[in-house]
Design a protein around this nucleic acid. Structure first.
Lengths: 190, 190
DNA sequence: CTTTTATCGTTAGCCACCTAACTATCCGCC
DNA sequence: GGCGGATAGTTAGGTGGCTAACGATAAAAG
């Protein structure tokens, strides 16, 4: 689960010292990077712990929320059954993973699979009554938890935070699209 | 792998709208939370992709770095063999996981297990020559990648960023230590 | 109409995480 | 000295992620 296998982050002086041995090491960049992964892990752990009380993992929750579909789809009426491929697309995991998650959720009677009416290759996955009920039961505390986690940040800090996170996100996204045969220099050194 | 099973983050208006239906939902808090997990995932993916070229996962890299031990231990001489329990402690995973990772690394001849001289219950895990060589080979590009990822942030932005990340980290840490029998109200609603 | 190509969901097999239980060893106490 | 509890590492079994390959179906090409 942890993205960052490092419990105690190195002190800045350590990074500085290491940067003498390794000129490529940018102390402040490394510091931000490590803090980002560390904080993400911890924030994740907090909500994961809560969801676990309902036998729900982050992956299953992602599928349920996608099916719940408040916004995301944006077309007025919210809850709409989706195909596994659409679920994979929205949650960002592979179709194979969706198969497994839907298996689990179906076993727990939280979603149901039905053949797709138009295309016999496809399935249609939708929330069951029980799934809907569980979501309604879980969400308030889930939302409260996120709110609690960010309580110490002012509105202006939050805006700044989102701006910085977005900057990194965009930068990281550049790396994906980099040409397969990489140009001579840095961008990820692929 | 992904902490956040949600590829496209909801627009702020969506969160605002949803907050009318769910009063517990704090739009700006949720926005920060989702961005944090999303950016963490992406940053992780970037370095993971690089490490994968050397048949190294983030977990194995964590173990290797712990054994390399620049700073962390802090006692002058850097590289020191560690016991599995120490590795687990420093990397933040269970001893069982360490067993698996060390198995893999040992098979690849990057680390070696030897009986601990003082205590026959313990093992002593150390880098092999090959492991040391691989690290020296990997690290420069790894450092460059982190630097590249943060290149768009000024030094002052980085300081702000670390401050905000630390704030969230500390808040999240509060949740762990919360009394098993929780006090009446919120703190994570455990 | 037939053949190819693309797409769907699933399967099989790998990896790294977890918890719980186990064996071996050490240590404190009588 | 011997015995009970703590601690070491491992094992067993579960989960959720991945890739690669598959059979079924649909759509495009001939």
């Amino acid at each position: 689960m942890p993205l960052l296998m490092l419990k105690d982050l190195p002190r800045y002086e350590c990074l500085l010292e290491a940067s003498r041995e390794f000129p490529d090491l940018d102390p402040s960049a490394t510091e931000v990077f490590l803090h980002l992964l560390r904080s993400g892990d911890e924030a994740f752990r907090v909500v994961e712990t809560h969801l676990a009380q309902h036998e729900i993992t982050q992956g299953r929750f992602g599928v349920l929320m996608a099916l719940w579909g408040n916004c995301q789809g944006g077309d007025g009426k919210t809850e709409v059954p989706l195909t596994p491929a659409e679920l994979a697309d929205r949650t960002g995991v592979t179709r194979a993973t969706i198969t497994g998650l839907v298996d689990t959720l179906e076993r727990a009677n939280l979603v149901s699979r039905t053949p797709h009416p138009d295309d016999r290759r496809m399935m249609s996955v939708g929330l069951t009554k029980r799934g809907r009920k569980l979501l309604v039961q879980i969400m308030p505390a889930h939302f409260r938890q996120m709110a609690w986690l960010m309580e110490t940040l002012s509105e202006s800090e939050r805006r700044t935070f989102v701006r910085l996170l977005t900057k990194v996100l965009r930068r990281a996204a550049e790396d994906t699209v980099s040409s397969p045969a990489a140009p001579p220099a840095l961008p990820g050194a692929r």
